[in-house]
Amino acid sequence: MTTPLDPRRANDPRDFLDLDALLDEEEVAIQQTVRKFVQQQVLPDVGDWFDRGIFPRELATEMGSLGLLGMHLEGYGCAGTSGTSYGLACLELEAGDSGIRSFVSVQGSLAMFPIRAFGSEEQKEQWLPAMASGEAIGCFGLTEPDSGSDPASMRTVAKRDGTDWVLNGTKMWITNGGIADVAVVWARTDDGVRGFVVPTDTPGFTANTIHQKMSLRASVTSELVLEDVRLPAGAVLPGVEGMRGPLSCLNEARYGILFGAMGAARACYEAALDYATSREQFGRPIGGFQLIQRKLVEMLVSVNRGTLLALHLGRLKDQGRLTPAQVSMGKLDNVRQAMDVAREARNVLGANGVTLEYPVIRHMNNLEAVYTYEGTNEIHTLTLGQAITGIPAFR
């Protein structure tokens, strides 16, 4: 017999749908551990990091010690958690800052994942344990100056020279590039697109930091230049050929984003809620006015709806049923919902909303980049269009 709900029970404005009740003990433990880390190690200083445009290198080993790097991968020092647990970690990290979550996504889903999925045993043993601990940092070289949404048109090439490979080309907008110890670089070969594991101290490899960003400032973004970078035969990822390799990596990263965006949205909503219930105008808190309450309600609905979608997709992933198009749906809608929440929250905070004393403008700026990277809104729209009609509209 179901116990009747006490009508006097107050709804929790920070978990209105009681979504935490959908999590198992391990998921709750991971969520709380990451939330505590963000509260203690990220939030006190992230505004300054954003202002100065830096990512503290020591965060890598701190996150590695918590098992967050490559956490959804098996073996080689990786935690081997569920996909849902990984998603929840991304949500909590991005509640701190998109740049922090982006570091973890790139390290685990874009650099470690292809080595784990497609690498040789030697490559796995050489790189994965050090990357899982944060002692080695990885990056992912796919996007080029003239090849963003159409990565198959890349110009970076790898030519055989005896038993060696020689790489030439340029990659752009590469997260972690300037601090990476290893890069997973995708290049055209005579046999199609192949992935290469490139130590960044290889002669001819240069990473140039991109400055004057107004988004993801607490994250290192770089241009990679490869000029006659000579690699041994064992540098190629043996387990994959063609665009399936890099696209599968992007799908892993997008999965983390659809969770992470809800972390940014939640942080903005909670900042607006706290502000609206403490800021007084006309003799009472502004949260008592109808227009402000409507804004808060719209934010509440978006955060809860998007988080519920993320959890559902997480369960599908853990069941082996999640499709790339479903990931596209989550990335497309959760990011744009998060952008709407951030803008409404900025409005609630008034002039205070544009200062780094509050987290909102930082999240708002970050989400502009999140909206574009790992597949633009337009590309995900066309992906979904093809999924429901069977007709591709990319060309």
Rank of each mutant, 00 (worst) to 15 (best):
D12I: 07
L17K: 01
E25D: 07
E26H: 11
A29F: 02
Q31S: 12
K36W: 03
F37P: 03
V38I: 10
Q39K: 02
V42A: 00
L43N: 00
F50D: 12
G53A: 04
I54S: 05
R57D: 10
M63F: 05
L68C: 01
L69N: 01
M71K: 00
H72P: 04
L73V: 03
T84Q: 09
T84R: 13
G87M: 03
G96P: 08
D97F: 05
S98E: 09
I100H: 01
R101M: 15
S102Q: 07
S105M: 11
Q107E: 07
A111T: 07
A111V: 05
F118S: 03
Q123R: 05
E125G: 08
C139E: 08
G141K: 03
L142M: 14
T143V: 14
E144N: 06
E144A: 10
P145F: 05
D146N: 14
V157R: 15
A158M: 12
K159F: 07
R160A: 07
V166H: 07
G169D: 07
G169P: 12
G169F: 14
K171T: 10
K171A: 13
K171I: 12
M172R: 15
G178E: 13
I179D: 01
A183D: 10
R194W: 11
G195F: 12
G204P: 11
Q212V: 10
V220S: 12
V220F: 07
E223T: 15
L226T: 06
D228R: 13
L231T: 03
A235E: 09
L237W: 05
V240Q: 08
E241V: 15
E241R: 15
L247G: 02
C249R: 02
N251R: 14
N251Y: 11
S278Y: 00
S278L: 06
S278K: 04
R284W: 01
P285F: 02
F289A: 00
Q290T: 05
K295F: 06
V303H: 02
N304A: 10
R305P: 01
L311N: 06
L313D: 02
V327C: 07
V327D: 09
S328T: 02
G330T: 07
L332W: 14
Q337A: 15
A342Y: 14
N347W: 06
N347C: 06
L349Q: 07
A351I: 13
T355M: 05
L356T: 10
L356P: 06
P359D: 04
H363R: 04
M364A: 13
N365M: 15
N366C: 11
V370C: 02
G375L: 06
T376K: 02
T381I: 13
T383C: 09
I388P: 04
T389F: 13
G390A: 11
P392C: 03
P392N: 01
